[in-house]
């Protein structure tokens, strides 16, 4: 592709923009994790945090060294997020079967 993909001019969007977005997602995820009492809501917060980390890796790959190691790291983060969601939600459903609740304060015992 020739001229319409080039990246000149004001160069308005660079690394800090991505870091800012990632920061917002991280903070929001943290707020959700701390403030919410529903276990599934907490898992939503975890997803936000994992995404912000993956976004950071991809952004650094693009703007700092271009060797794609960051993309691979992001890929593994996505994989781990998927595994975490599957097992986490299975635990939530099992917990709900046992306690009839998904309130985090009801999870007081290690045994059923």
């Amino acid at each position: 592709m020739q001229d319409h993909v080039e990246d000149n001019g004001a160069n308005m969007i660079s690394l800090p923009s991505y870091l800012f977005l990632s920061f917002i997602m991280f903070i929001a995820g943290l707020v959700v994790m701390v403030a919410r009492k529903n276990i599934i809501a907490i898992l939503l917060g975890v997803e936000l945090i994992l995404n912000s980390a993956a976004l950071n890796f991809a952004a650094y790959t693009r703007f700092i060294n271009q060797n794609l190691e960051g993309n691979i790291m992001s890929l593994f983060i996505i994989v781990i997020a998927a595994a975490e969601a599957a097992v986490g939600l299975a635990i939530v459903i099992r917990f709900f079967q046992l306690k009839e609740s998904v309130h985090i304060d009801d999870a007081t015992q290690l045994q059923a």
Binding site: L43, L55, N71, A81, L89
Partner: peptide, 30 residues
């Protein structure tokens, strides 16, 4: 954002894994 960053494969895997898998899983759990 991944697409803007030029990480095409990453963008597509994000769509596949999250939209198709994780979100539906979460909705089911809710």
């Amino acid at each position: 954002l991944y697409a803007v960053l030029g990480a095409d494969f990453l963008a597509a895997s994000q769509l596949v894994i999250y939209a198709g898998g994780v979100i539906i899983l979460m909705l089911f759990a809710v």
